[in-house]
């Protein structure tokens, strides 16, 4: 959890708006450090978290969260965190064997045309069943609003899922998590290469980004510096709020530069890096 980002977004673990869909995207840079921020943020806020880790192993997220002061293993044991490890689940489908049972949630790997229905079912059951289960088991711990985190959606495109299916998935998740359960949702999309190439046809990850940007209520777009590589400034992040107020949407944009440290990240206004001043 990066406190500087919290003050930019004007949230704390004790008070944050519910029902938000936060889109994290990047281009020619790496925005995964923001996923770690939101993971530790919502775990501290005592939310019930469902994490779809599609690109890294649990030990990676666990090691980074430890540096940010949150133990994923404990959160998992307490039932606060439901962790879906895509890499592990995929192997049983990619290398079919008689002995181990096949994962249902990743069945799009067998045939991408079926879409992400089973993955959505996994999300829905893990987040919405929690209330009833707690009554039955009479758990002492009571968790806050449900949160869905996905790292990252664009890998689904690499695995053959169509853009439409991914947009359907995010729309279903938004309807369930944000609207019905009044929880939050954070999704990461990573885009290829250069923006606005003149060849006309949109590339699939760009189409996905456009679709999701339309759905989301807050977007954080990470880019490399337009002036090129720099060791002391790792890139810039554009924060864009869209608030629906009465008759229309109200947009507000802010641009910050950032640097990722060992145990956090610092955000500063353009041109005010320590290396420059």
């Amino acid at each position: 959890m990066y406190t500087e980002l919290n003050s930019i977004l004007n949230v704390t673990p004790d008070s944050f708006t519910q029902g938000e869909f936060i889109l994290v995207s990047d281009r020619q840079s790496d925005a995964s450090f923001l996923i770690h921020h939101f993971l530790s943020f919502y775990l501290r806020a005592r939310c019930k978290v469902c994490f779809l880790g599609l690109v890294q192993s649990f030990s990676h997220y666990s090691a980074v969260s430890q540096r940010l002061g949150v133990s994923l293993t404990q959160a998992k044991e307490k039932g606060q965190l439901i962790f879906f490890e895509g890499l592990k689940e995929s192997l049983s489908i990619l290398i079919p064997q008689e002995t181990n049972p096949e994962s249902q949630a990743m069945d799009f790997l067998r045939d991408p045309s079926v879409g992400l229905r089973s993955l959505y079912e996994f999300v829905r059951s893990s987040l919405s069943s929690s209330g009833g289960e707690e009554k039955g088991a009479d758990r002492a711990e009571e968790w806050g609003p449900p949160v869905l985190l996905v790292d990252d959606l664009s890998v689904l495109l690499s695995l053959g899922v169509s853009v439409g299916a991914v947009l359907d998935f995010s729309h279903y998740c938004q309807a369930t998590v944000c609207s019905k359960l009044q929880g939050n949702m954070v999704m990461l999309v990573r885009c290829n290469g250069l923006e606005e190439e003149d060849d006309g046809d949109d590339e699939s990850s760009d189409r996905l980004l456009k679709g999701l940007t339309h759905q989301c209520s807050l977007s954080l777009h990470v880019q490399g510096l337009p002036t090129g590589y720099c060791r002391d400034i790792h890139g810039q992040v554009e924060v864009c709020w869209r608030r629906r107020q009465g008759d229309g949407t109200h947009m507000q944009k802010k641009l910050f530069q950032f640097k990722v440290h060992d145990k956090g990240a610092s955000f500063f206004a353009r041109g005010t890096s320590n290396a420059v001043l």
Partner: peptide
Amino acid sequence: TFLYGLRALLR
């Protein structure tokens, strides 16, 4: 997809 599976194996 192969590279995804390879990453899963290596990790």
